[in-house]
Design a protein around this nucleic acid. Structure first.
Lengths: 302, 302
DNA sequence: TAAAAATACTCCATAGGTATTTTAT
DNA sequence: ATAAAATACCTATGGAGTATTTTTA
């Protein structure tokens, strides 16, 4: 059974008149009569009772009319949806994210997506680490990931969203809090509250310390920024983290910039090759949100 | 979008191979490639990624595959259902019935219908009177009615299902209970518990009494048989009702046949003209259930 | 280089058009 | 008598076939 025949039947059944239905279908009456007859033969069932004065539906015709309408609407909807997905205007993006993007960058992205890509459904998995995310991208378990470069090796492309710099967070009474700006080398005897070993920030920190000639002493690991800050506030050690992570929530904490602070970038990454139209559209949406030097809306000093 | 194209697409998407899909569709590969290309052009959307080694689905293709399968199944189901309704194997019959058929005849009909016409849905309205039912049939509010002839006039056809005869029911101590068989004329001085005036049984009774030379004195009307019998048992009067209504439920009641008992028939009626295939099938199913003399499985005497 | 999809072309089935007839009110 | 559907016949679009080329793993 062809959708064309269904459309023809619905037109005739609704108009109860072959002539008017033919007009509505932009065709002549005789071929319409033929096609309806053919439909009835195909279904081996009389659908219409015709006299020269009126056209009436048989019970089978009533059933067909009701259900054909629904089917045709569903088909139309399907066509629309396929078009939307094809144009990258609708669909699901599985987005991984580092924990430190959750509170500043992610809300902006989600807001922008909701406004500009209403057909997009974002499935966010937060609190992931860079190697986890690159692996998930490579294996197709994620479509996009917000992570901190560097990216180990293969098959991952990315676009910078934010260029950030490391800064130091100290407990309020700490002697180094007297200095307006700190040197990394001056921290060699401190105890550090660190992000997990495999995290991008920790990788950058350890490498920077190595260049400054020491290995940082890890007092405690903390996988979330809030935990890390509370450990620092409790005096368990000092923290080193991206400036953007700071906002003045606690008087027991003091932030100090680092001279020649190592850069930590935030980027959106995808598997190299052909990202889907949807992913491409989302990346276009991200591009204007990207900026290259630390936060501008908040002052990280003190 | 044509169902043919959907079928083609589903075949290719499932086989992930144009050649095999073409085989499955009993056609050559080149026209299949062309048709899929055409579908993609119609939808303005790439559905498949082809290389010479493998065929893969785009997100739009995945969506189309999933939903096209559903749509095609629905279409198939619709075709089946229309066929069933067309052949009168499925659909709804609105069946009216006189109250006195509810306990003997109706269960047999319903059982037979459930067994032989599983697609049939019977909507039964019981406790109706003959004139109500003929009117409802004429106006198309009922498809069939189980009623007692005669049918007043117009446009109603019927088939006899049961030929029954009137009998008398007496309170146990009644003088007439001594007789094994009664004459209607002998009841001229009795008080009667009657069915409603417009009921078919009452019509037959009044006419029979008129011919016997009297007008029955109505002590009480009762629209249901059970009510009527309880009034008789209470000694409020005697009853006259079809033999088939009797079964020995009460020792306070005595049944006696009437000599030359007037016939009361039970028939199934429909609007004259072209009953639908469904109604015709149901009538065919009823025909073998019809019988012409009173109950054979139960003995109405005493 | 070999398997598979795409292209080029040909053909014919059939959807749709026009002219006319039949039918029911 | 007339409006409307059915029939008869014709045309041409496009779906499907065969032969061949292109592509990429």
């Amino acid at each position: 059974m062809d959708t064309r025949l269904l459309r023809y039947f619905v037109a005739v059944a609704e108009e109860r008149h072959f002539g008017r239905a033919a007009q509505r279908l932009h065709m002549a009456q005789p071929p319409l009569s033929q096609q309806i007859k053919q439909l009835e033969e195909q279904l081996d069932t009389q659908l219409l009772v015709r006299t020269t004065r009126k056209v009436e539906l048989t019970p089978a015709g009533e059933l067909l009319l009701a259900r054909a309408r629904v089917l045709l609407l569903e088909l139309e909807q399907l066509e629309r949806d396929v078009r939307l997905v094809g144009q990258g205007a609708a669909g699901v993006i599985r987005l991984g994210s580092t924990g430190s993007a959750t509170f500043r960058l992610m809300p902006r992205l989600i807001e922008a997506a909701a406004a500009q890509m209403p057909g997009l459904q974002l499935t966010v998995r937060g609190e992931m680490l860079t190697p986890q995310m690159t692996e998930a991208l490579a294996e197709g378990r994620l479509d996009l990931a917000i992570l901190r470069p560097p990216v180990s090796g293969q098959d991952i492309e990315y676009m910078l969203l934010e260029r950030d710099r490391l800064s130091v967070v100290l407990p309020a009474g700490h002697p180094l809090a007297a200095e307006p700006e700190l040197e990394l080398a001056g921290l060699r005897h401190e105890k550090f509250i660190c992000y997990p070993q495999s995290s991008a920030v920790n990788t950058v920190l350890v490498e920077a310390c190595r260049r400054a000639g020491f290995v940082p002493a890890v007092a405690q690991e903390a996988s979330e920024t809030s935990t890390l800050l509370s450990f620092v506030a409790a005096g368990l050690g000092i923290g080193v983290l991206p400036m953007s992570q700071y906002f003045p929530h606690d008087t027991k904490l003091v932030f100090r910039p680092l001279r020649n602070a190592p850069a930590v970038d935030l980027a959106i990454a995808w598997k190299a090759g052909n990202p889907s139209a949807l992913v491409r559209n989302f990346l276009e949406l991200c591009a204007p949100l990207a900026f290259t030097e630390g936060p501008s809306d908040e002052d990280p000093a003190d």
